[in-house]
Design a protein around this nucleic acid. Structure first.
Length: 251
DNA sequence: AACACCAGCAACCGCACCGTC
DNA sequence: AGACGGTGCGGTTGCTGGTGT
């Protein structure tokens, strides 16, 4: 159907905001709030479109915004959340107090993406990829994550995977590289069981995949489970020394 | 000193979603 | 039910300052 442009181009200012404009916008919102972004610029006396005002407020003027460089911890969180959520910047921003989606998006594109490519690629290339890719491609669909054209091509080495029975998973989650030891894990079990209702899906008696669920209940997430699995598998096929230190186990 | 190139960041743009009429 | 308006989101652009030649 085609939407009208968000603002009439006539007479409305574009480009960087001046100090005066910032003051006007901030004063207006502090006094009146921002009920209707479209009407706001007119009411506040700004020659800007509502969208531009909203963006300026959300990304720059809001009092709860944390300015300055991202800490290492924040960067790790972004990497981890991005693995988990993809490009859902607003969701990622919601988990990093004081940071905006725009800021996170910029940091990702300018720093983190490059850094990840650097740390990941050279080490992955130390294995004989021609064999690996050929092997993987014959056994996978072109759009499968195992296919060489996909990002995870080098992990597709698995010609003799260990059998993934209960003892396999048990080992995965009790390995030295795991993020918690078995005592810690069992304490967590007990705590969760104490605090959750017997019919809660979190309760151990209701969790059909006990070997994996403790980690999920820990909040480790699907990615962590997969990471642990990959660790185990790469050990099994003798690849670990080549890939260890990459991005899998965290930066 | 002048120019070219690059990285970082603020802001814009178009689309999708949701609520209202 | 569908047209419309408001808002939010993600991708992209373009300006600016720093660095190299």
């Amino acid at each position: 159907m085609g939407r009208a442009p968000c603002c009439e181009k006539m007479g409305l200012k574009k480009g960087p905001w001046t100090r005066e404009e910032d003051d006007i916008l901030m004063n207006y919102i502090n006094q009146n709030g921002h009920g209707n972004w479209r009407a706001l610029p007119k009411l506040a006396g700004l020659l800007r479109c509502g969208k531009s005002c909203r963006l300026r407020w959300m990304n720059y003027l809001r009092p709860d915004i944390k300015r300055g460089n991202f800490t290492e911890e924040e960067e790790h969180s972004i990497i981890r959340l991005h693995e988990e959520l993809g490009n859902r910047w607003s969701v990622i921003a919601a988990r990093l107090p004081g940071r905006t989606d725009n800021e996170i998006k910029n940091v990702w594109h300018t720093h983190l993406k490059k850094r990840l490519n650097k740390t990941c690629q050279p080490k992955m290339h130390t294995i004989d990829e021609s064999n690996v890719d050929e092997n993987a491609n014959t056994k996978s669909e072109p759009n499968s994550p195992l296919h060489s054209s996909s990002e995870m091509s080098s992990t597709a080495v698995v010609s003799n995977l260990p059998e993934m029975d209960e003892s396999f998973w048990s080992e995965v989650f009790s390995s030295d590289d795991s993020k918690m030891d078995s005592n810690e894990e069992s304490n967590i079990h007990q705590t969760i069981d104490k605090k959750s209702e017997p019919n809660s899906p979190l309760h151990s008696s209701n969790c059909p995949i006990h070997m994996i669920s403790p980690s999920w209940r820990m909040g480790l997430g699907f990615t962590d489970v997969i990471q642990r699995w990959l660790l185990k598998v790469t050990r099994a096929v003798g690849l670990l020394p080549l890939v260890h230190g990459g991005t899998w186990g965290g930066p």
